[in-house]
Amino acid sequence: MSLDFLAGFTIFMLALIMVVSMVPGLLAGLQSSGIDYDAVAYRTGVILVEDPGWPVYPPWEMKAGAYKDEIERMGLAASKETPNILLSTKVDAFFNGTFFASEDYRSKAIFGDIPYSYNFSLRSEDGTYNNATGDPLPPGYGYGYIRRAVKIKEPGVAVINGSFAPQYTSSTANQEFIVRLNFSQLLDPERGPAYRIDPRTEPVSITITDFGAYRNMTLPTPENATLKNVTFWKMDPTVPMPRFTRIPFSYNTEDPDLYTLFIDGNQNNLVPDTEVSENISLVLKPAATSIFTLDQNSILEVRFNFEDDDYPHTNITGIHHYDYNTTNVTCPPLKPAVLEVAIW
Protein backbone atom coordinates (compact mmCIF):
# COMPACT_ATOMS: atom_id res chain seq x y z
CA MET A 1 0.00 0.00 0.00
CA SER A 2 1.47 3.36 -0.96
CA LEU A 3 2.30 5.97 1.63
CA ASP A 4 0.68 8.82 -0.29
CA PHE A 5 -2.55 6.85 -0.41
CA LEU A 6 -2.45 6.39 3.35
CA ALA A 7 -1.75 10.07 3.99
CA GLY A 8 -4.36 11.27 1.55
CA PHE A 9 -6.95 8.86 2.82
CA THR A 10 -6.29 9.87 6.42
CA ILE A 11 -6.92 13.52 5.54
CA PHE A 12 -10.02 12.52 3.61
CA MET A 13 -11.35 10.49 6.51
CA LEU A 14 -10.76 13.34 8.96
CA ALA A 15 -12.68 15.68 6.67
CA LEU A 16 -15.48 13.14 6.30
CA ILE A 17 -15.72 12.67 10.06
CA MET A 18 -16.03 16.41 10.49
CA VAL A 19 -18.77 16.68 7.91
CA VAL A 20 -20.65 13.74 9.33
CA SER A 21 -20.42 15.12 12.84
CA MET A 22 -22.00 18.33 11.60
CA VAL A 23 -24.92 16.54 9.96
CA PRO A 24 -26.88 15.76 13.15
CA GLY A 25 -27.08 19.43 14.07
CA LEU A 26 -28.24 20.27 10.59
CA LEU A 27 -30.84 17.54 10.59
CA ALA A 28 -32.04 18.01 14.16
CA GLY A 29 -32.74 21.66 13.50
CA LEU A 30 -34.94 20.81 10.55
CA GLN A 31 -36.65 17.86 12.15
CA SER A 32 -37.56 19.35 15.49
CA SER A 33 -38.92 22.67 14.27
CA GLY A 34 -42.50 21.47 14.14
CA ILE A 35 -42.18 19.93 17.54
CA ASP A 36 -40.49 23.03 18.87
CA TYR A 37 -43.39 25.23 17.75
CA ASP A 38 -45.79 23.24 19.91
CA ALA A 39 -43.50 23.54 22.90
CA VAL A 40 -43.14 27.28 22.40
CA ALA A 41 -46.90 27.66 21.99
CA TYR A 42 -47.45 25.71 25.19
CA ARG A 43 -44.93 27.82 27.06
CA THR A 44 -46.44 31.05 25.78
CA GLY A 45 -49.89 29.81 26.75
CA VAL A 46 -48.68 29.08 30.27
CA ILE A 47 -47.07 32.52 30.58
CA LEU A 48 -50.20 34.27 29.38
CA VAL A 49 -52.77 32.26 31.30
CA GLU A 50 -51.08 31.31 34.57
CA ASP A 51 -48.90 34.31 35.25
CA PRO A 52 -49.79 37.90 36.16
CA GLY A 53 -46.69 39.20 34.39
CA TRP A 54 -43.88 41.26 35.78
CA PRO A 55 -43.76 43.79 37.41
CA VAL A 56 -46.82 43.10 39.58
CA TYR A 57 -47.17 46.38 41.54
CA PRO A 58 -47.61 48.64 39.76
CA PRO A 59 -48.78 46.11 37.17
CA TRP A 60 -47.14 45.93 33.77
CA GLU A 61 -50.26 47.02 31.91
CA MET A 62 -49.86 50.49 33.42
CA LYS A 63 -46.35 50.91 32.01
CA ALA A 64 -47.47 53.06 29.15
CA GLY A 65 -45.40 55.03 26.69
CA ALA A 66 -41.82 55.63 27.77
CA TYR A 67 -41.99 53.03 30.53
CA LYS A 68 -42.67 50.18 28.15
CA ASP A 69 -39.13 48.88 28.58
CA GLU A 70 -39.82 48.18 32.24
CA ILE A 71 -42.19 45.40 31.26
CA GLU A 72 -40.40 42.10 31.76
CA ARG A 73 -43.18 39.69 30.98
CA MET A 74 -46.76 40.03 29.85
CA GLY A 75 -49.05 37.69 31.74
CA LEU A 76 -52.82 38.02 31.78
CA ALA A 77 -53.73 36.14 34.98
CA ALA A 78 -55.29 38.06 37.84
CA SER A 79 -52.71 36.58 40.21
CA LYS A 80 -50.43 33.61 40.31
CA GLU A 81 -52.77 31.85 42.75
CA THR A 82 -55.60 32.02 40.22
CA PRO A 83 -54.44 30.42 36.98
CA ASN A 84 -56.86 30.81 34.05
CA ILE A 85 -58.61 33.85 35.58
CA LEU A 86 -57.65 36.74 33.31
CA LEU A 87 -57.91 40.37 34.24
CA SER A 88 -59.81 42.49 31.71
CA THR A 89 -57.39 45.43 32.11
CA LYS A 90 -54.45 43.18 31.23
CA VAL A 91 -56.37 41.70 28.30
CA ASP A 92 -57.17 45.16 26.95
CA ALA A 93 -53.56 46.28 27.28
CA PHE A 94 -52.23 43.09 25.71
CA PHE A 95 -54.42 43.26 22.64
CA ASN A 96 -53.92 47.01 22.25
CA GLY A 97 -52.44 46.94 18.78
CA THR A 98 -51.09 50.47 18.88
CA PHE A 99 -49.16 50.06 22.09
CA PHE A 100 -47.20 46.87 21.50
CA ALA A 101 -45.14 46.03 18.44
CA SER A 102 -44.54 42.48 17.30
CA GLU A 103 -41.05 42.67 18.79
CA ASP A 104 -42.61 43.30 22.21
CA TYR A 105 -44.76 40.20 21.96
CA ARG A 106 -41.70 38.17 20.99
CA SER A 107 -39.52 39.42 23.81
CA LYS A 108 -42.12 39.69 26.56
CA ALA A 109 -44.50 36.80 25.94
CA ILE A 110 -43.01 34.24 23.56
CA PHE A 111 -39.34 34.29 24.60
CA GLY A 112 -37.07 32.59 22.12
CA ASP A 113 -34.04 33.18 20.01
CA ILE A 114 -35.87 32.63 16.75
CA PRO A 115 -38.19 35.45 15.62
CA TYR A 116 -41.31 33.28 15.62
CA SER A 117 -44.47 34.31 13.87
CA TYR A 118 -47.44 34.25 16.17
CA ASN A 119 -51.16 34.69 16.43
CA PHE A 120 -52.95 35.20 19.73
CA SER A 121 -56.69 35.31 19.91
CA LEU A 122 -59.18 35.53 22.72
CA ARG A 123 -62.90 35.10 22.39
CA SER A 124 -65.46 35.06 25.14
CA GLU A 125 -68.51 32.85 25.01
CA ASP A 126 -70.88 35.83 24.77
CA GLY A 127 -68.73 37.54 22.13
CA THR A 128 -67.93 40.70 24.10
CA TYR A 129 -64.25 39.84 23.86
CA ASN A 130 -63.11 39.02 20.37
CA ASN A 131 -59.49 40.04 20.21
CA ALA A 132 -56.67 38.85 18.00
CA THR A 133 -53.17 40.01 17.30
CA GLY A 134 -50.39 38.74 15.07
CA ASP A 135 -50.11 37.42 11.55
CA PRO A 136 -52.85 35.44 9.82
CA LEU A 137 -52.52 31.72 10.40
CA PRO A 138 -50.60 29.79 7.75
CA PRO A 139 -52.73 27.28 5.82
CA GLY A 140 -52.65 23.68 6.92
CA TYR A 141 -51.32 22.50 10.23
CA GLY A 142 -47.77 23.80 10.00
CA TYR A 143 -47.87 25.69 13.26
CA GLY A 144 -47.62 25.01 16.96
CA TYR A 145 -50.89 25.45 18.77
CA ILE A 146 -52.42 25.46 22.20
CA ARG A 147 -55.87 26.40 23.37
CA ARG A 148 -56.63 27.36 26.94
CA ALA A 149 -60.02 27.68 28.58
CA VAL A 150 -60.12 30.78 30.74
CA LYS A 151 -62.47 33.15 32.54
CA ILE A 152 -62.22 36.91 32.34
CA LYS A 153 -62.65 39.05 35.44
CA GLU A 154 -64.11 42.49 34.85
CA PRO A 155 -64.03 45.45 37.24
CA GLY A 156 -66.94 46.25 39.50
CA VAL A 157 -69.21 49.24 38.97
CA ALA A 158 -70.98 51.27 41.63
CA VAL A 159 -74.29 52.36 40.13
CA ILE A 160 -76.08 54.87 42.33
CA ASN A 161 -79.54 55.10 40.86
CA GLY A 162 -82.79 56.59 42.05
CA SER A 163 -83.43 53.78 44.50
CA PHE A 164 -80.70 55.16 46.77
CA ALA A 165 -82.36 58.60 46.81
CA PRO A 166 -84.14 58.26 50.20
CA GLN A 167 -80.86 57.13 51.73
CA TYR A 168 -78.68 59.83 50.23
CA THR A 169 -80.81 62.95 50.41
CA SER A 170 -81.09 65.35 53.25
CA SER A 171 -82.19 68.96 53.14
CA THR A 172 -80.13 69.92 56.16
CA ALA A 173 -76.65 68.67 55.29
CA ASN A 174 -74.26 70.22 52.81
CA GLN A 175 -74.42 69.01 49.23
CA GLU A 176 -71.45 66.72 49.24
CA PHE A 177 -71.67 63.15 48.11
CA ILE A 178 -68.83 60.82 49.11
CA VAL A 179 -67.83 57.44 47.73
CA ARG A 180 -65.53 55.74 50.19
CA LEU A 181 -63.08 52.95 49.37
CA ASN A 182 -61.66 51.21 52.40
CA PHE A 183 -58.61 49.38 51.11
CA SER A 184 -58.20 47.16 54.16
CA GLN A 185 -61.72 45.91 53.49
CA LEU A 186 -61.31 45.60 49.73
CA LEU A 187 -57.92 43.88 49.89
CA ASP A 188 -58.91 41.53 52.72
CA PRO A 189 -57.01 38.29 52.01
CA GLU A 190 -60.15 36.31 52.89
CA ARG A 191 -61.40 37.30 49.48
CA GLY A 192 -59.59 35.52 46.69
CA PRO A 193 -57.98 37.49 43.87
CA ALA A 194 -60.55 36.12 41.41
CA TYR A 195 -63.36 38.03 43.12
CA ARG A 196 -61.45 40.95 44.58
CA ILE A 197 -62.01 44.64 43.95
CA ASP A 198 -58.46 45.98 43.69
CA PRO A 199 -58.34 49.67 42.77
CA ARG A 200 -54.58 49.33 42.29
CA THR A 201 -55.07 47.12 39.24
CA GLU A 202 -58.64 47.74 38.13
CA PRO A 203 -60.55 50.94 37.41
CA VAL A 204 -63.06 52.22 39.93
CA SER A 205 -66.36 53.15 38.27
CA ILE A 206 -68.89 55.37 39.95
CA THR A 207 -72.08 56.13 38.06
CA ILE A 208 -74.86 58.28 39.40
CA THR A 209 -77.98 57.88 37.32
CA ASP A 210 -81.52 59.20 37.77
CA PHE A 211 -80.07 62.41 39.09
CA GLY A 212 -83.54 63.90 38.99
CA ALA A 213 -84.43 61.86 42.08
CA TYR A 214 -81.79 63.75 44.04
CA ARG A 215 -83.03 67.21 43.08
CA ASN A 216 -84.28 69.63 45.67
CA MET A 217 -88.03 69.39 45.36
CA THR A 218 -88.85 72.58 47.18
CA LEU A 219 -90.16 75.33 44.96
CA PRO A 220 -89.07 76.64 42.60
CA THR A 221 -88.11 73.13 41.37
CA PRO A 222 -84.72 73.35 39.68
CA GLU A 223 -84.01 71.58 36.40
CA ASN A 224 -80.46 70.73 37.33
CA ALA A 225 -77.72 71.16 39.91
CA THR A 226 -74.15 72.30 39.53
CA LEU A 227 -71.34 69.83 40.09
CA LYS A 228 -68.67 72.18 41.35
CA ASN A 229 -65.79 69.77 41.65
CA VAL A 230 -64.70 66.21 42.35
CA THR A 231 -61.84 65.79 44.79
CA PHE A 232 -59.90 62.84 46.15
CA TRP A 233 -59.14 62.51 49.84
CA LYS A 234 -57.19 59.89 51.70
CA MET A 235 -56.70 58.79 55.26
CA ASP A 236 -54.22 56.40 56.81
CA PRO A 237 -55.96 54.93 59.89
CA THR A 238 -52.72 53.46 61.24
CA VAL A 239 -51.16 56.82 62.12
CA PRO A 240 -52.11 58.59 65.38
CA MET A 241 -55.06 60.93 65.01
CA PRO A 242 -55.94 59.96 61.47
CA ARG A 243 -57.80 62.45 59.34
CA PHE A 244 -58.63 62.91 55.68
CA THR A 245 -56.27 64.97 53.61
CA ARG A 246 -56.89 66.25 50.13
CA ILE A 247 -54.73 64.46 47.59
CA PRO A 248 -52.72 66.83 45.40
CA PHE A 249 -53.69 66.05 41.85
CA SER A 250 -54.02 67.98 38.62
CA TYR A 251 -57.77 68.23 39.00
CA ASN A 252 -58.27 70.63 36.12
CA THR A 253 -56.49 68.60 33.41
CA GLU A 254 -58.45 66.13 31.41
CA ASP A 255 -56.43 62.91 31.15
CA PRO A 256 -58.20 59.78 29.94
CA ASP A 257 -55.22 57.71 31.11
CA LEU A 258 -55.96 58.70 34.70
CA TYR A 259 -59.70 59.23 34.82
CA THR A 260 -62.76 60.00 32.76
CA LEU A 261 -65.65 62.09 34.01
CA PHE A 262 -68.81 62.30 31.98
CA ILE A 263 -71.61 64.67 32.94
CA ASP A 264 -74.81 64.02 30.97
CA GLY A 265 -72.64 62.35 28.38
CA ASN A 266 -70.11 65.15 28.00
CA GLN A 267 -66.52 64.66 29.04
CA ASN A 268 -65.21 67.06 31.68
CA ASN A 269 -62.27 67.60 33.94
CA LEU A 270 -62.63 67.25 37.71
CA VAL A 271 -63.48 70.92 38.25
CA PRO A 272 -66.44 70.99 35.87
CA ASP A 273 -68.61 73.65 37.52
CA THR A 274 -71.20 72.32 35.12
CA GLU A 275 -74.91 71.75 35.43
CA VAL A 276 -76.00 68.15 35.67
CA SER A 277 -79.52 67.00 35.11
CA GLU A 278 -79.30 63.28 34.28
CA ASN A 279 -76.18 61.40 35.21
CA ILE A 280 -72.56 61.53 36.29
CA SER A 281 -70.05 58.83 35.43
CA LEU A 282 -66.56 58.78 36.90
CA VAL A 283 -63.99 56.12 36.07
CA LEU A 284 -60.81 56.30 38.12
CA LYS A 285 -58.05 54.40 36.34
CA PRO A 286 -55.46 52.36 38.29
CA ALA A 287 -52.78 54.69 36.95
CA ALA A 288 -54.34 57.46 39.03
CA THR A 289 -54.72 55.27 42.10
CA SER A 290 -51.04 54.40 41.89
CA ILE A 291 -49.93 58.04 42.06
CA PHE A 292 -52.13 58.59 45.14
CA THR A 293 -49.57 56.53 47.13
CA LEU A 294 -52.12 54.36 48.89
CA ASP A 295 -51.32 51.22 50.83
CA GLN A 296 -53.47 48.31 51.96
CA ASN A 297 -54.75 50.25 55.00
CA SER A 298 -55.64 53.51 53.29
CA ILE A 299 -59.13 54.87 52.94
CA LEU A 300 -59.80 56.75 49.72
CA GLU A 301 -62.72 59.10 49.31
CA VAL A 302 -64.09 60.52 46.10
CA ARG A 303 -66.06 63.65 47.00
CA PHE A 304 -68.61 65.12 44.61
CA ASN A 305 -69.29 68.69 45.61
CA PHE A 306 -72.51 70.30 44.41
CA GLU A 307 -72.93 73.99 44.92
CA ASP A 308 -75.29 76.50 43.47
CA ASP A 309 -75.15 80.22 43.83
CA ASP A 310 -78.75 80.90 44.73
CA TYR A 311 -79.99 77.94 46.82
CA PRO A 312 -79.23 74.19 46.97
CA HIS A 313 -80.51 72.59 43.76
CA THR A 314 -79.89 69.12 45.07
CA ASN A 315 -80.20 67.41 48.41
CA ILE A 316 -77.67 64.71 47.67
CA THR A 317 -75.40 63.91 50.58
CA GLY A 318 -73.99 60.93 52.41
CA ILE A 319 -71.34 58.26 52.07
CA HIS A 320 -71.60 55.44 49.57
CA HIS A 321 -69.34 52.56 50.49
CA TYR A 322 -67.53 51.03 47.55
CA ASP A 323 -67.34 47.52 48.98
CA TYR A 324 -68.43 43.93 48.51
CA ASN A 325 -72.07 44.66 49.34
CA THR A 326 -73.74 43.69 46.08
CA THR A 327 -76.24 46.56 46.27
CA ASN A 328 -73.37 49.05 46.53
CA VAL A 329 -71.08 47.65 43.85
CA THR A 330 -72.03 45.31 41.04
CA CYS A 331 -69.24 42.85 40.34
CA PRO A 332 -69.88 41.30 36.93
CA PRO A 333 -69.69 37.49 36.86
CA LEU A 334 -66.55 35.92 35.39
CA LYS A 335 -66.84 35.52 31.63
CA PRO A 336 -65.90 32.16 30.09
CA ALA A 337 -63.54 32.52 27.15
CA VAL A 338 -60.90 30.67 25.13
CA LEU A 339 -57.38 31.87 24.50
CA GLU A 340 -55.57 30.46 21.49
CA VAL A 341 -51.85 30.68 20.82
CA ALA A 342 -50.35 29.75 17.43
CA ILE A 343 -46.60 29.85 16.80
CA TRP A 344 -44.74 29.15 13.59
Partner: peptide, 25 residues
Protein backbone atom coordinates in the same frame (compact mmCIF):
# COMPACT_ATOMS: atom_id res chain seq x y z
CA UNK B 1 -17.71 0.29 6.46
CA UNK B 2 -18.60 3.79 5.31
CA UNK B 3 -22.19 2.91 4.57
CA UNK B 4 -22.44 1.24 7.96
CA UNK B 5 -21.09 4.36 9.67
CA UNK B 6 -23.48 6.52 7.65
CA UNK B 7 -26.45 4.38 8.56
CA UNK B 8 -25.41 4.44 12.18
CA UNK B 9 -25.39 8.22 12.17
CA UNK B 10 -28.73 8.43 10.42
CA UNK B 11 -30.28 6.06 12.92
CA UNK B 12 -28.90 8.17 15.72
CA UNK B 13 -30.36 11.33 14.21
CA UNK B 14 -33.83 9.92 13.68
CA UNK B 15 -33.75 8.55 17.17
CA UNK B 16 -32.84 11.94 18.54
CA UNK B 17 -35.51 13.80 16.61
CA UNK B 18 -38.12 11.47 18.03
CA UNK B 19 -36.68 12.17 21.42
CA UNK B 20 -37.13 15.92 21.03
CA UNK B 21 -40.89 15.63 20.51
CA UNK B 22 -41.23 12.99 23.14
CA UNK B 23 -39.39 14.83 25.86
CA UNK B 24 -41.18 18.16 25.37
CA UNK B 25 -44.65 16.64 25.31
Amino acid sequence: LLVAVGLFFLALIINQSALVGQTTA
